[in-house]
Amino acid sequence: MGKHAHGHAHHELDGRNLIEAAAHALIAAGEQWTTMRETVFAELARHDRPVSAYDIADNLSAARGKRVAPNSVYRILDVFVANNLAMRVESANAYLANTHPGCAHDCIFLVCDECGEAAHIDDEDVSRSVRAIAAARQFKAERPVLEIRGLCKSCT
């Protein structure tokens, strides 16, 4: 099974294309794309592993030569998660940039306990099943997140 097992196609964006797509998606959602939001998103997108708000704040503080408060970063990351620009790896309290912003889907992560890598998987069958389980219990699933902990191919 490849990285994406689903019924619709994505193309992964990176670099400037990803930042521009994120800006477009956030503005389309009625939010503002500020310089600080762009800076936080660019820092988040630079990482291919989950990164914490504190790490982002520390990296931005060092780059700018003045302190960036983690609380400010958390608020921005919350906006990104709410608008599908970022995904939160709950168990690590860390974030990943969504490489196809504007496409809504549930989060399924394979999280390596050794190296910290978190592979994001799209699987429409699993998503439908999880939502059906919730619906059968009169529960409206807003943003399902599944995390499977273990060891990645490199660490086994």
Rank of each mutant, 00 (worst) to 15 (best):
Y74T: 12
L60K: 05
V81Q: 01
C107D: 15
T34E: 03
S127N: 06
A94K: 09
V126K: 01
N98R: 12
V68G: 02
C112K: 05
V130Y: 00
R64C: 01
K140Y: 07
D113P: 09
A69K: 15
C112V: 04
V79Q: 06
L18T: 06
D122A: 13
H8I: 00
S91D: 14
R49A: 15
M36K: 09
V68D: 02
G30Y: 00
R75H: 06
V51T: 11
M1A: 10
G65Y: 04
P50N: 06
E142F: 09
D58E: 13
N71E: 03
A118D: 04
V68W: 07
V73I: 10
Q138K: 13
L146W: 09
S127H: 06
I108Q: 11
T35A: 12
R46M: 09
P144K: 06
A92P: 08
R49G: 14
N17H: 07
H100Q: 13
V126F: 10
R128N: 05
P50D: 04
R46F: 11
L110H: 15
I148F: 15
E114S: 15
G7Q: 04
Q32E: 15
N83W: 02
N84E: 12
M36Y: 05
H11C: 04
V89I: 13
E90L: 15
E12R: 14
D123R: 01
R67C: 08
V111R: 10
K66W: 14
D14W: 12
P70M: 07
A28W: 05
C152N: 09
A94T: 07
L146S: 15
A9H: 13
C107A: 15
V73E: 01
I19M: 07
A92I: 07
R137F: 08
L110I: 15
E31L: 00
C155L: 10
S129R: 14
I76N: 00
K140C: 09
S154L: 10
H11E: 05
T39V: 03
L13V: 05
A141Q: 05
H8P: 00
R64N: 11
A119F: 11
C155N: 09
A57L: 01
A118K: 06
H4G: 12
L60N: 04
H100K: 07
E43Q: 12
A86F: 02
R137S: 12
E31K: 08
A86W: 01
D123S: 10
I148V: 14
S129G: 14
A25E: 03
E20L: 05
C115L: 08
E31D: 06
G150D: 10
A5G: 07
L85C: 01
A94C: 06
A134C: 09
A53I: 11
K153T: 13
R64P: 01
A92K: 14
A92N: 06
G15N: 03
S127A: 14
M1N: 06
I108D: 03
K153N: 13
